[in-house]
Amino acid sequence: MTVYVDDVRHSFGRMVMCHMWADTRGELLAMALRIGVSHRWIQEPPNASWVHFDISLRKKALAIKAGAVLTDKYGPVEHTARLRGDQAKLDQIARIRAEQPKERLL
C-alpha cells in the first residue's frame, strides 16, 4: 500500500497546491496526520473524482520525506482507472507517457 503525490501545480491564493492520495483511506488519513494536514480538508466523491487531499508544496515535501511516491500529472487518472478496472485508460496513459520526453518530477 502506498501514498502518492503528483507534480501538478495549482494556485490557491498565495499557495501552490498538488494532490495527495493513497491505496487506502486509512493510509491517506495516517499520512495527513503525520504531515499536519487536517482531515477536514479531505476531498471525496461526489464533490471530487477520487479520495484525496489538495496539499501545499511544503506539505508535499514532508509527504515525500515520509515515504510518499512522487508521480506525474497522470497519477490521479491512473489511480482512478485502476480502481475502476479500466484497462483501456491505463493503456492510454502508458502510451502517452512513452511518447513524452522524460521530465524531472518535482
Rank of each mutant, 00 (worst) to 15 (best):
75 G>N: 03
16 V>C: 01
17 M>F: 04
23 D>Q: 07
85 G>F: 00
66 A>R: 03
2 T>E: 12
63 A>S: 10
52 H>G: 00
69 V>M: 10
71 T>S: 03
6 D>K: 01
76 P>M: 03
20 M>V: 15
40 R>E: 14
7 D>T: 09
96 I>F: 15
65 K>W: 12
59 K>T: 08
50 W>K: 09
12 F>N: 13
56 S>V: 11
39 H>T: 07
72 D>C: 04
42 I>E: 12
9 R>P: 01
105 L>E: 05
96 I>G: 00
22 A>K: 03
71 T>H: 02
100 Q>L: 05
103 E>F: 09
26 G>K: 15
43 Q>R: 13
46 P>S: 08
95 R>W: 03
5 V>T: 14
75 G>E: 07
56 S>N: 14
71 T>D: 01
81 A>Y: 03
74 Y>D: 08
101 P>K: 15
48 A>M: 06
84 R>F: 07
8 V>P: 01
74 Y>N: 13
4 Y>S: 05
28 L>C: 04
54 D>K: 03
72 D>F: 00
85 G>D: 06
56 S>Y: 12
10 H>D: 13
95 R>M: 09
10 H>S: 09
92 Q>Y: 07
15 M>F: 06
16 V>L: 09
10 H>W: 15
79 H>Q: 10
62 L>V: 02
99 E>C: 05
38 S>K: 07
29 L>P: 01
71 T>W: 00
84 R>Y: 12
33 L>C: 15
9 R>G: 05
63 A>I: 10
27 E>R: 09
35 I>P: 02
15 M>T: 10
63 A>M: 07
38 S>R: 15
43 Q>M: 14
